[in-house]
Simulated assay, not measured.
Amino acid sequence: MSYAHKVEGLATLFQGLDGVEGAVSATGAPLEIPLAAIEEDENQPRMRFSEAELDELAASIVARGVRQAITVTPKGEGGRHRILYGARRFRAAQRAGLSTIPAVIREPSPDDAYDQMIENIQREGLTSAEIAAFVSCRIVLGEAQADIARRLGKAPAFVALHAAVAHMPELLRSKIDSAPIRGLYDLYQAWRSQPKPVLAFCESREGFTRAEVTTFLTSLKDASAPQVDPVSRVEFFEVPLPPVEERVPSASARGKRHQPGEVRSTGAPSVNGVDAVVRVGQREGRLLLDRQADRGPDHARIRYDDGTIAEVLLSDLHLAALRDRRSA
Score class of each variant (00 low, 15 high):
Phe134Asn: 01
Lys175Trp: 02
Gln194Tyr: 05
Val66Met: 04
Gly267Trp: 13
Ala200Lys: 13
Ala113Trp: 00
Ala144His: 10
Gln259Phe: 06
Asp186Arg: 13
Phe208His: 07
Ala92Gln: 09
Asp186Val: 13
Gln145Cys: 08
Gly9Thr: 14
Ser178Pro: 00
Val263Cys: 03
Gln68Met: 05
Glu53Val: 03
Leu172Asn: 09
Ser178Lys: 10
Met47His: 08
Glu8Pro: 00
Ile121Val: 09
Leu84Ser: 01
Leu314Glu: 08
Ile33Ala: 01
His81Cys: 03
Ala190Cys: 12
Asn272Thr: 02
Phe201Arg: 05
Gln44Ala: 02
Gly97Cys: 07
Gln189Thr: 07
Arg295Asn: 06
Thr218Asn: 14
Lys256Ala: 15
Ser174Ile: 04
Gly97Pro: 05
Pro297Tyr: 07
Phe236Gly: 03
Gly22Asp: 07
Ile139Asp: 08
Thr73Tyr: 02
Ala300Thr: 04
Glu51Ile: 09
Gln259Tyr: 04
Tyr114His: 04
Arg323His: 12
Thr308Gln: 12
Gln15Glu: 15
Arg279Cys: 07
Tyr304Glu: 13
Pro260Glu: 11
Ala293Ile: 04
Leu35Met: 09
Ile302Ser: 09
Thr71Arg: 01
Gly125Asp: 05
Pro74Ser: 02
Ser219Gln: 14
Glu56Cys: 02
Glu170Gln: 13
Val271His: 11
Gly86Asp: 10
Thr100His: 10
Thr127Ile: 01
Arg182Cys: 00
Ile61Val: 07
Glu53Pro: 00
Glu246Ala: 10
